[in-house]
């Protein structure tokens, strides 16, 4: 009791009040999506919409309707496959690459930082034409692997750099000791380094998932067939429609957000630690 009162000064409650005020503004779009999804369209299409769901008409009907009228489940499943595929491949590639960049001084090391930034500045809209050509000649249009591979390529420069930062944080004496004990390099990496890299793996996984799940351009271009769409392409397909079913669109939007939000809430603590020890430090 005494520690509690000593810890919680009025100033701290003031900070909490500020935080709540700030969050109210920042998260209003999310609130409005939820609110829209539970109110029937006809009640929303007025010049002064209700700011809280009216108790008598609020319902989750929009979710059921949109699930029936569009293959949302299928799109979510496609997104899940693309996201998991991208994240798992990215983790493996960037752990190997990050370890190499951290422990060995090669010319590639200096080039990598530049490649990271260069890959960020490439207009995706420029790349998709050649990427489309490549996958068309390989007969891989409407193939989820094509989207996975492109997303891996888009993710890997940054995650490799991130992993290098994490490996930098592990003293090399640890693996030297293991190697003196007769452990080969790859086995040392797998048995000694990888377990210590858990925060880095979590950060890389989260980053790759968010990027791949949110991808719109690549999936839209490489997956012309509606049954192969990811959730983002599916959602975009109803933004431009003549009369938008806003409740349904917001319901679909929320369903597209939930998996990433769950992942994010679990892995967010790692993310801050990861950024602190990772690439973007002072």
């Amino acid at each position: 009791m005494s520690t509690l009162t000593r810890k919680r000064t009025p100033q701290q409650w003031g900070l909490l009040a500020i935080s709540i005020a700030v969050l109210t503004v920042l998260l209003f779009p999310v609130y409005w999506m939820v609110m829209t999804s539970v109110v029937p369209s006809r009640e929303l299409l007025t010049s002064s919409p209700p700011l809280v769901p009216p108790a008598d008409s609020a319902s989750f009907d929009a979710y059921g309707e949109v699930l029936e009228s569009r293959p949302i489940g299928l799109w979510l499943w496609n997104s899940t496959l693309v996201t998991l595929g991208t994240a798992l491949i990215s983790i493996v590639i960037s752990t190997l690459g990050g370890y190499s960049l951290s422990r060995f001084r090669t010319k590639a090391q200096q080039a990598m930082g530049f490649t990271l930034l260069f890959s960020r500045m490439l207009p995706g809209t420029l790349l998709i034409i050649p990427v489309f050509v490549i996958f068309a000649s390989a007969g891989m249009i409407n193939n989820l692997w094509s989207v996975i591979l492109v997303n891996v390529a888009a993710t890997v420069p940054f995650t490799t750099w991130l992993m290098k930062g994490f490996v930098d944080g592990i003293p090399s004496e640890i693996e030297e000791a293991a190697m003196i004990d007769g452990c080969g390099r790859l086995r040392t990496l797998w048995q000694v380094i990888v377990p210590l890299l858990r925060p880095g793996l979590a950060t890389t996984f989260t980053y790759a998932c968010i990027l791949a799940w949110g991808d719109f351009l690549f999936a839209r271009t490489l997956m012309p067939n509606p049954s192969d769409w990811t959730i983002t392409v599916g959602i975009a397909s109803f933004i431009g429609e003549f009369s938008v079913d806003w409740s349904g669109l917001m319901a679909a939007g929320i369903m597209s957000m939930v998996p990433m939000l769950i992942l994010f809430v679990f892995l967010e603590p790692f993310l801050v630690k990861g950024m602190a020890s990772g690439s973007v430090k002072g």
Binding site: R8, Q12, L16, I210, L249, S256, M257, F264
Partner: peptide, 25 residues
């Protein structure tokens, strides 16, 4: 401050929302 553990992920949350869902909202 109290509740920071909840405030922080909420404040960072838009980062996890797909760009297209943001556009839709």
């Amino acid at each position: 401050f109290p509740g920071k553990r909840i405030v922080r992920p909420l404040a960072l949350l838009p980062w996890a929302v797909p760009g297209v869902a943001v556009a839709a909202a």
